[in-house]
Every structure is written in C-alpha cells, then in structure tokens.
Amino acid sequence: MGAGGGKGTGATTYREAMREALREALRSDDRVFLMGEDVGRYGGCFGVSLGLLEEFGPERVRDTPLSESAFVGAGIGAALAGMRPIVEIMTVNFSLLALDQILNNAATLLHMSGGQLPVPLVIRTTTGAGRQLAAQHSHSLEGWYAHIPGLRVLAPATLEDARHMLAPALADPDPVLIFEHGSLYNASGELPPPTGPVDLDHAAVRRPGTDISLITYGGSLPKALAAADELASGGISAEVIDLRTLRPLDQAVIASSVARTHRAVVVDEAWRTGSLAAELSARIAEESFYDLDAPVERVCSAEVPIPYARRLEEAALPQTADVVAAVHRAVD
C-alpha cells in the first residue's frame, strides 16, 4: 500500500490514486481536512485514506461519530468559515441520513443568501453494487444528487480521474460530490503522467466508434468497454462515452457523438425509472431526434432492491451481455 501513484512509476490502483489525490490536497493547502466515519485509525472503510492519519494527524484526518447529518453539516459550516473540508460518507446508502444537509444547506445556501455564501465543500462516497452486499449497501443513487441545482456531481471511472479530479473539485467554490464505484477500487494499471489540469466540465470519448454511442459513467464504464470489444469482433464499431460529470451534463459531446453514430445506448447501474438514464434519453430525444436512426436504448438495473444471492444480483445489474443485446436491438 501507499505506492506513489502519481508519477507513472509502475502499476497503481484506483484506491491508491484516490489516496494520492487526498495526500496531495492535504499537503498543498492547510485549509483542507478530511473527516468521516473511520477515515483515520481504520484507514477508511475501503482503505482509501490508509496512512493519512499518521501523516497528517487527527486534526486533519478526523474520525467522526456515526452522525452523517452532523458531520456533513459540520463540513458545510467549516466550508462557510473558510476551510476546504473533504467529507467522506462511507457509502451513498448512508448519505440519505445527511440528505437534508446536502440538499437544504449545501446546495441551497448560496442561493438563499443572494450569493453571499458559497459552500466550497467536497463530499466523497462509494456507490454501486456487484459485491453481494445486498439492498442496503448496493444502490446507485448518484442520479438523485444529479437532480439538484447547486451541486456538481462527479463519477471518476478511470485511474486518471481518480487521481486528478479532487484538486479541481476542491478549487470549485461550490459543493462537489464525488461518487467512487466500489468495484473500481482494485482496478489497476499504469497511471500516465498528468497532461495538465483536469477539467470537470467535459465528458470523455474513451473509445471512438462510428456505428453506435454507448453513454455511461463510473462502474459501468468497464462493462461498456468490454461490450465494445465484443461488438468490434462482430463488425460493429461502438463509441464509448464516459460522462465523468453527472451534473452539469456535457450535452455537446453526447450530441456530437449521436450526430455521427445515429444510435445511442445509455448504460446506467441505477434503476431505469425516473433516472439519469431517463434524463439522458430525454435530452437525446430533444436535441438529436433527427439524427437518430433507431430509438434510444437503456440498460439499467432491474426495478428491484439489489438482492444478495449472486445470480440474482448479477441478473439485476447491467451486464456486458445486456449492453451487447441492446446494441443489436438498435443496429439490426
């Protein structure tokens, strides 16, 4: 553990990339501090902050009681008073106990105060299923947060974004939520050296293609890429778009991709009904209707609380095969 992760020296994991981002933030700005349940002595419930307590001490790597509302709200207050807090909520499922603070304070104070009170807060949390953790630890609720004006919502899906999204998030004067998909922490690879500041406004084309656009983010990106591989061997060229930022959405990248491919599949691990996938489909219908050669397809989780049993969980979640099938529906 604790591999550098910043310089392109050997393999690094998503977890280490995130940790290195935290370390850099704590080093470079004494207004930054990290707080949350078990971020200190335990090292973070997913091991992300391991070693940071020893390096920065208990004032700046701050274990909190099990009080999501109080410590998220305390992060908001500290941000108002000039600090740059990073608040970790163990998983998005528990963020619901702090939803009041996130929506009614963090997202709203700037507006209610007539522009006097920006809230430069970063909240990190884990999202997603796939590890047989059952219904109360597996949901993908980032789309709910993407519903809220005043928030920026990020979903780093790659090592680069895990490593480099935090700094611009901290520089943002407004609240930023970072959703880390639990299945990504062990993803590893070579982290390329930084090519300049990472922007938070644009979606990325992770794989160019000409026949269909696969629009996805976070933990579903590897599945979409795997589907594109499989489709390529069957002669279908799929373009894979990683949204990166779920609010505000990068409408331009989506529209220009669909203008080229004329077909779109949205892949989103959240439930289909009233979802981000629904929003994306609606926008494509609004903006790209005359470019489309087929109806937009959606691959989402089944409308069921995520079950524990492995085969049921797998059946509930979008899988590579589901993406491939959706593409065939659109293309054939």
Partner: peptide, 18 residues
C-alpha cells in the same frame, strides 16, 4: 428546516477552532 442549522453551527465552530 427544524434543527437544520445545528450541524452547520458545529462546522463554523470547528473551523474557527482549527
């Protein structure tokens, strides 16, 4: 929001202390 200001106040106090 009834009680909604309390966590915020804790954060203001924390920042001043830090």
């Amino acid at each position: 929001i009834v009680a909604g200001g309390l966590p915020l106040a804790a954060g203001l106090a924390l920042a001043d202390r830090m």
